[in-house]
Amino acid sequence: MNAQQCCFTAAARSPAAPATEVPAGLVLRGLGVSYGSKAVVRDIDLAPLPTGCVVAMVGANGAGKSSTLRALAGLNPMSGQALLDGDDLAALDPATRARRVAYMPQSLPQASSLTVYESVLSAVRTACPQLGTAVVHQRIETVLGDLGLRDLAMRPLLALSGGQRQMAGLAQLLVREPRLLLLDEPTSALDLRWQLCLMEALRRHVAGRQALCLMAVHDLNLAARFCSDMLVMAQGRLIARGAPGRILTPDLLRRAYGIAARVETCSLGTPLVIAERAFDPE
């Protein structure tokens, strides 16, 4: 609890802090990712991410969203700097990184004969081995309750639907209570109901713990509804950042996706993107 309050105050204080002090949160300086000699992400600079809200990362296929997330999670090597609360992520050993950064892959958790409870337990036991048994079970109780998985807790993953399995994957992520959450298209395999459940649960968790959360997503309208901050990537570079209502324009969509699109405001007050026509590739 203390540690969490600490982070909270540090994060709250950071805008007023002198420029020499390392800011809390996630800061990227010249981040790059290459596979062999091929650079897929280049020169990403990012002022601190806001805490307590889900930040969307959008862009066409191959724009470098997944590569950026994987690099931050330590699954791919990266160049440049990624600072989490002042610590260079590349310099952290895997155990420390696993405690502070959690990543949810794009694919659903594998359909094994592990029960939901066991799969969540194994995630917290490997990522946070320092926790006592009572704390571990308390955390699982809370997370599965929050995600509406209580009744499925003793069912094997292979007996669940795709949506339920993805929620179990989210439980494996949230139970670790990481400072930084990285999610790669968590809603792409889900129907509308599960999309809503997952986003609501994620937003609650991130707001409740004042965590940092970066989520790659294809559905611009979903992103516009649930995220107050958005990063737009194209060809490995960050081309826009800001509130969806401010940055989503037909011109940006043309540059990011190569489409002609209309941007309207829906009755909820959030922007609504309607794709109209795809331009021929140049």
Binding site: L75, S107, S122, A123, R176
Partner: peptide, 13 residues
């Protein structure tokens, strides 16, 4: 056991 939920998941743990 963690590996049973997927390779990238286990790595992230």
């Amino acid at each position: 056991t963690a590996l049973r939920s997927g390779e990238d998941h286990a790595r992230s743990c």
